[in-house]
């Protein structure tokens, strides 16, 4: 089975992204440095200003939010990077190969998710090193599950964007007008409990369930919904994103 073309195609798509990721030192560094900056600057700047519902250290509150953010950004980027392949023609090389588009998408998604997870894990380990507590072993497993689901959802979303855009020009617009506001309203950086309107808005925000779930499973307090409820919801979000993303990618012509 490991020699079948479809398996090889998935493997190639995955391996290619891993190589590109590991070779691009600047990307590796910047995607790790950026969330760390957020962690330190926000962590020390807002520590005294923000009051948390259940009390506790602001850094502990922030860490899950930053982990979610780094995975989101990285996965979205790999999802959208299909555009590179489109623009630079490499996509055509893949599309004329005797392999199904399904394998191409699976390979791409796995590759994107793996690189995002590596980054998320590095941030997580640093956060734990800084004293962010782990609620329990089961909590840690749940954390990983959330990280995986976040990664796949964001790759799916990236694929949706990529199949709707012709080039990269619109990408910053989408980041600034959609992703950042959603992230701010997701309780990643500050709690949404202080204000009833914000809480209601949060319930319409898919990122909220990801961040809240990650927080609930990692540190185990200051979360609003129980982690398993969040997990179920995020799972549904993930399936929806992946389905739409692969459907649109499938339909797009080279």
């Amino acid at each position: 089975m490991f020699n079948t073309r479809e398996f090889q195609a998935i493997y190639v798509m995955w391996l290619r992204q891993m190589k590109r990721f590991l070779r691009s030192k600047s990307r590796l560094v910047s995607t790790i440095i950026q969330p760390l900056f957020f962690l330190f600057i926000l962590g020390s700047g807002f520590r005294t200003v923000i009051t948390l519902g259940e009390g506790g250290d602001y850094l502990h509150f922030l860490a899950p939010g930053i982990v979610a953010m780094s995975i989101l950004f990285s996965s979205m980027f790999t999802g959208v990077s299909v555009l590179w392949d489109k623009q630079f023609g490499f996509l055509q090389e893949v599309l004329v190969a005797p392999i199904s588009r399904f394998s191409i998408i699976i390979g791409r998604t796995l590759g994107g998710a793996t690189t995002a997870l590596i980054q998320g894990l590095i941030i997580l380990i640093i956060a734990i090193g800084l004293g962010v507590p782990i609620s329990s072993f089961f909590g840690l497993l749940l954390t990983i599950a959330f990280m995986i689901l976040i990664a796949f959802s964001a790759v799916g979303f990236g694929l949706i964007i990529a199949s709707k855009m012709q080039d990269f020009h619109g990408f910053p617009l989408i980041m600034n007008l959609i992703i950042l506001p959603l992230l701010f309203l997701s309780s990643a950086f500050f709690p949404v409990t202080s204000n009833e309107t914000m809480k209601i808005i949060a319930f319409f925000n898919p990122l909220f369930y990801m961040v809240d779930g990650l927080r609930g499973s990692l540190i185990g307090f200051n979360n609003i919904l129980p982690p398993l409820v969040n997990l179920g919801l995020v799972f549904v979000i993930c399936i929806v994103m992946m389905t739409i993303g692969s459907y649109l990618f499938n339909k797009s012509e080279a």
């Binding site: 090889q8 195609a9 391996l15 190589k19 590109r20 630079f88 490499f90 893949v94 005797p98």
Partner: peptide, 25 residues
């Protein structure tokens, strides 16, 4: 061989060939 270049420039020449060969079984 497409009119527009269709290589993965972040990979080596050999890798481009190898990945191609894998996809063709």
């Amino acid at each position: 061989v497409f009119q527009e270049p269709a290589l993965d420039t972040e990979l080596t020449g050999e890798e481009n060939l190898e990945y191609h060969a894998r996809m063709y079984g």
